[in-house]
Amino acid sequence: MAKVLKLEVVTPERVSLQVEINSLVVPATEGSLGVLYNHAPLITGLEPGVLQYRQGEQTFFLAISNGFMEVADNLITVLVDTAEKPEEIDVERALAAKERAEKRLKEQKPGLDVHRAELALHRALARLKVADYKNVS
C-alpha cells in the first residue's frame, strides 16, 4: 500500500472517520467523482448519497448528507452534516423518511418545499442503500 491517501470524514458532532485508503468515490454536486493518489487540489460540494472507499481489496460505504470535500496533498477532508456507517443506520427510520418524502412529493401540496423534500428523499435512499451493503458483505 504505497500509494495511500488519507481520508477524514468530519461532522459537526464528531470526527467520524480517519483512515488510509486507496481510492474514493463521492456523490459531488456535478455528478459522481473519483479520487486517486496524487489528485490535483480540489474543493467541491457534495450531495446526499453514498460515499465509497477502497482499502486494498475491500470496499467500504458511508451514507452522507450534503457538505463539502477538500482534496490537497493526498489528504481528503469530507465535511458533511451526517455520515453513517452501515451498522449505524436505523433502517426503519430511513424507510419511514423515504415514504414521507415520497408522499409529499406526490401530493405536491401548496407551500411544499420541494427542494427540501427531495433532499430528504435522497438522504433516506442513501441510508437504505448503505444499509443494504451490510447485508451483502
Binding site: T29, L42, G45, A72
Partner: peptide, 22 residues
C-alpha cells in the same frame, strides 16, 4: 495552491455559507 472548484467558487460558496451558519 491552485484549487479546482467544482462547481465554480461562487456556487461552492452558496453551499458553504448556509452550512457555516448552521
Amino acid at each position: 495552491k491552485e484549487y479546482i472548484y467544482e462547481p465554480a467558487p461562487q456556487e461552492v460558496l452558496s453551499i458553504l455559507l448556509p452550512q457555516y451558519i448552521n
